[in-house]
């Protein structure tokens, strides 16, 4: 069974170092699920044309439905990006909630979304009469990992 113990040590070493690499390595820098508006604007031409994901909050008061088009702004508190889409929004979609929109941005900074996703936070609450969701809870949906 001596050889098997070597196998055990080898396997543990492989999985341990893989975990360490992923946990402390800079993988997150290269592997970003979505860009914040600030990052996208900072990337300038690099962001234009390619299909990217943009994540942020739907800026309160920015939602303008016109015909089959939905216009709103996505913000991270610092930078705001205008988004237009012809998609049907998810039922949870509303002002102030976190969204991840997939699509392209043009040179003028206008984002066109072909796929919209609503981010739900980790709070589960019973409805109360006349309650309004707090802003803090909304920002909670955009917590960065």
């Amino acid at each position: 069974m001596k050889r098997n113990k070597l196998w055990a040590i080898g396997a543990l070493f492989v999985s341990g170092s893989a975990l360490a690499y992923i946990a402390v390595g800079d993988l997150g820098e290269n592997l970003v699920y979505y860009w914040s508006p600030t990052e996208m604007v900072a990337a300038k031409q690099k962001a234009v044309g390619a299909t990217i994901r943009l994540g942020g909050l739907v800026e309160p008061g920015s939602l303008v439905p016109t015909g089959h088009t939905l216009n709103f702004r996505v913000t991270d508190g610092t930078t705001t990006v205008p988004v237009t889409t012809q998609e049907v929004p998810p039922q949870m979609f509303r002002e102030g909630i976190g969204v991840v929109v997939e699509g392209t941005v043009d040179g003028a900074g206008q984002f066109t979304s072909k796929r919209m996703m609503v981010k739900h936070d980790n709070e589960y609450r019973a409805p109360t009469d006349g309650s309004t969701p707090s802003n803090a809870a909304m920002f909670g949906t955009m917590d960065e990992g």
């Binding site: 196998w7 055990a8 080898g10 396997a11 543990l12 492989v14 999985s15 341990g16 893989a18 975990l19 992923i22 946990a23 997150g28 592997l31 970003v32 699920y33 979505y34 994540g55 991840v100 996703m117 981010k119 739900h120 936070d121 980790n122 709070e123 589960y124 949906t141 917590d143 960065e144 990992g145």
Partner: peptide, 29 residues
Amino acid sequence: AVASIVAYVDVPIVYFSVRWWRSLHQVQS
């Protein structure tokens, strides 16, 4: 057994994925 030990590395990654990286999935409640 060796393959399982190596594959198991993904379990902590699944658990911490929502904390380490930006994700659509919410963090643990």
